[in-house]
Design a protein around this nucleic acid. Structure first.
Lengths: 231, 231
DNA sequence: TGCGTCAAGATTTTAGAAAATATAGATTCG
DNA sequence: CGAATCTATATTTTCTAAAATCTTGACGCA
């Protein structure tokens, strides 16, 4: 009966497992397509099936894991199609969210953005591991849109950014970070100076880049994605 | 040990409870803000806490129920703010989804739309109960965007439409259906004739109408919404 | 050899009860 | 009398174990 494996439980075990799993998936430790065996996970996290299952249900709702009714759960596979869909949705929603955030910007938001940008810069200007870089990326982007004033928008953006992050991490393992970092620098500059058009352009550039790089990686066989099963 | 209370379980009990709860919430039987007591629900559905809790976790992921860590779950309250946010998001995403669907339209889609439109007309031209009307509405709109080719878009649209449906049901209980029905007729006509601009206009009209009517209902005290708690 | 059937094992899913946590009411102290 | 504390109760949350379901591989038959 080890109290709790490591790190403090946020509140409930279910929530704690949720975060652990999310982190493991986003970092790529649990690989796309990998089966999520109840037995293995209850052992790993020292919890019983109930909270584990609840966490899986939540993650499934966000698209990070896929569950088939009586066949268990697995980390949602990567696919070119999903990559394009996600970034298409981001292209539609993110500019709008950012526009709202910029229009409503205040000192509080600006300092938060500044801090997130600094953290981003520190990680991305050093040879940090892709998962760490991705964490900073997600933080920066969520901070940027946090002032949009719409909790539904935030919910959707969070889901989209997290899911797209899985592709970004994959990209960063095979290509240079520079172009991405440049996009984000421009994005932050534009946001803090109220340049909505510039911000929009920078956002779209990053999304397009992620899709392009992903496509290239798949072409070169460096990234395995789910084969399209139409039948 | 009554096998299963009523109606056949789709596959797992968890899924079955999910659908029952979803239906009860969307129809307004379980009212906004109402507490969802574990004991009461396990009794009502003749299931144990495990599948119930899993269903609640999923519904919470879609915004239909709100759970506070150690304080239980409740039907997510209605609020003017959420209503505006939802329809703003619909205004951004739905036209895009519909544009894709119209561009990719085929005979299969057209017949499905036709059937959904017929079912819609039958229900909306008679004095049916709002929940029945809403079911037909959701079906029609999901069918319309089903051909968009993006499963992520469908996921988001489904969530948005279902949540906005709670406000539509509330509206229909106090106002005439006519204007809404007219919007949908125009929407269907435009879609089937490939008129993307007209379809977009009809969509936006419905969304705007829902927000407007909701605002009026709240003003007149006919609809109770969560008071804005900023602290 | 190829295909359908059947057992054995693995895995998910559920139940029922126990543990942990929050809530409300009564009590005591200042 | 008011505030804080404590106790009893209600509720959520979790665990253990059992039931249901799926998967795998072997066997028999055409």
């Amino acid at each position: 009966m080890p109290d709790i494996a490591i790190g403090r439980p946020p509140l409930t075990r279910s929530e704690w497992v949720d975060r652990q799993l999310r982190e493991a998936i986003l970092s790529g430790e649990l690989k796309p397509g990998e089966r999520l065996l109840t037995a293995a996970l209850t052992e790993r996290f020292s919890v019983s099936p109930s909270p584990l299952r609840e966490a899986l249900a939540r993650l499934s709702g966000e698209g990070l894991v896929s569950v088939s009714p009586q066949r268990g759960a697995r980390v949602t596979p990567l696919s070119l199609r999903a990559c394009r869909e996600l970034h298409e949705l981001l292209s539609v929603n993110a500019p709008y969210a950012l526009e709202l955030a910029i229009a409503a910007r205040g000192t509080e938001w600006e300092t938060a953005v500044g801090e997130a940008a600094t953290a981003f810069e520190e990680v991305w200007s050093s040879p940090a591991a892709p998962p760490d870089a991705e964490r900073a990326f997600v933080r920066l982007h969520l901070t940027l849109v946090s002032a949009c004033g719409s909790s539904w928008m935030l919910r959707i953006m969070r889901t989209l950014i997290e899911n797209s992050g899985r592709y970004r991490v994959a990209c960063l393992e095979h290509t240079t970070k520079e172009p991405f970092a440049a996009d984000q620098r421009e994005l932050v500059r534009a946001c803090l100076s109220g340049d909505a058009a510039g911000a929009r352009a920078a956002q779209l550039a990053t999304y397009a880049r992620t899709v392009t790089v992903t496509e290239q990686l798949v072409e070169r066989g460096l990234l395995e994605v789910e084969e399209a099963s139409d039948g």
